[in-house]
Each structure stands twice: as C-alpha cells, then as structure tokens.
Amino acid sequence: MSSDVTPTSKPVKSTGLHVGEAGPGVRKVDPILTADSVKRTFGGLTAVDVAHVEIPRGAITALIGPNGAGKTTFFNLLTGFDKPDEGSWEFDGRSLAHVPAYRVARMGLIRTFQLTKALGLLTVMDNMKLGAKGQGGENLFRSVLPFLWRKQEDEIEEKAVELLTRFKLDTKREDYAASLSGGQRKLLEMARALMSDPTLVMLDEPMAGVNPALTQSLLEHILDLKSQGMSVLFVEHDMHMVRHIADWVIVMAEGKIVAEGDPHTVMQDPAVIDAYLGAHHDTDIGIDTEHVEVLKELIDDEQ
C-alpha cells in the first residue's frame, strides 16, 4: 500500500480503453476476458443473457446493476462455479468453457465471494499459504517427506508475511481467522487471492458489510492491484466507490448488458436510469426509497 495516497486524492484513471462509440458490448483495445452469447436460465427465469462483453486489461472495471440483474451469476459463470446453458468465453485467449473452477483459478483468474470465505478454523497464516499455487507438498506422496517441500514452504511464508504486512494483518498471523472482524476477513480474502499472483482479480461486492473506516484502505488496496499490473473486475452497489476508482463501468439489468462507458458518462445514460428505476419511472407508483438514494448519490457525485 502506498502510504502517500491521501483519502482525498483522485486516483489516476486509465482512459482510451475502448474502440469506437462506447455502448453495450463495445470492443476494447486489449481485452483480458471476453464473453459471447453466454446464457444461463433457472427454470423459466433467464438470469444471464450476455450477447458480447469484453473486460479491458490493466484497468479497474465495475459491474453494476440493480438487485437481481445477474451480476453474481455472471461472476459464477465466468469463474467456473456455474455452467451456462450456452455460450463461449475466453480468458487471455484461452477458452474457459467446460473448464472446472480450480483450473480457472490456476490460469490466473482469482475471485472472492460476496459472503466472505475466510476459513475461520484455520489460522490467518494457513489461510494465506493455502492461496499459493503449485505447492509440491500438496501432493499426498510428497507430503510425507517434509524435506521435499520445506524450502518452498519457507518462501511461501515469506511472501505471506509481506502481503499480510501490506494489509496490516501481520500481527494476527497466528490467530484463527474466525477471530477477525468482517472487514479484516475481506482484507484477508483479498490478500489470500494475491498469493497466487493472479492476472485478473474478480471481487464480488468487496465493500459489503465493511465499516467506513476500513473502506478507504480497501479502496487503496484495489487501486494498488492496478498499479501492480493486475486487472480488476468488481461488483459493487456503492456508487461513490464506483465513481472513485473504476476506469470502466458495465451496467447489467435483467441479465443483459445495457450500458458501458467511463463512470462519468455512463451514469447519465438513460438506459442506466431505466435499469435502476424501471422504464416507467416517470409514472407515479409511489416512493421507492432505495433507488431514489442511488440516484441522489449519482447527482451528488456530479456536483
């Protein structure tokens, strides 16, 4: 973490990511992940129906949309945790169709979960070590002979300590992860994901349930990922955060991509307002406080 970043400073935004007019499914200069006609239905409900989307490399991309838009399902499909009915998608030029989740992770696409999955019954250090790739000692036969993996284990531990220090969790290394606070678990999950040196980090609602004091530090960690050359795709509801750190925003509604663009222009897209408020938002059907809040945030940010 760069300590010179003050909370008020504006992060440097990556621009010039797309080719041609910004719109749903627009081509990117250098996509790291592309998806074509990915469709997932649950019975009669079509949860995800994405015609085409490209995630830019080396940038922070936000995936936003109202509840039930299919963001998490899309995440699960991309990472192999769920299987689509049809479609093809590629990561770094390699097809991900029918690739099991653990292989997707080994290719360098690491995800976190909306409900944090820090392993509470393991120590913080063991959680971190579990994240490292290609461990010889994870083979049953070699595990019996410690001298075969002791050296690698020490290297992994060194790297884990370094990351824990960066995430300010180094004093907790021998504690069980169950004793951490909600925000610290989010940090641990992110640090653990970094143990495998991923190229694309997918964060599912990294800010959910994190107290405001930790939000700033989490934001800086996400910006840090970009400065280290990783690409980030995250799902988020907090519009301030999206506006603050995202270089590119993809908006989903009812399973489809309805708008794309840089955070400032996309918020003014009528399709986005429709997505949050429904196409008939100018017909008076009573007060919908949640969506009014979101719009207020958008307007606040504009000023």
Binding site: T79, F81, P100, A101, Y102, R103, A105, R106, I110, R111, T112, F113, K117, A118, L119, G120, L121, L122, D126, L130, G131, K133, E138, R192, A193, M195, S196
Partner: peptide
C-alpha cells in the same frame, strides 16, 4: 482442513 470448512473457497484458490 480447508475443504472441511468451505470447499468452494478452496476451489477458488485453484485446488482440485
């Protein structure tokens, strides 16, 4: 031991 607690978390870290 990770699998005992949450196999999806372990799967997401690239373990079969």
């Amino acid at each position: 031991k990770g699998i005992r607690e949450d196999e999806d978390a372990v799967r997401a870290l690239g373990k079969n």
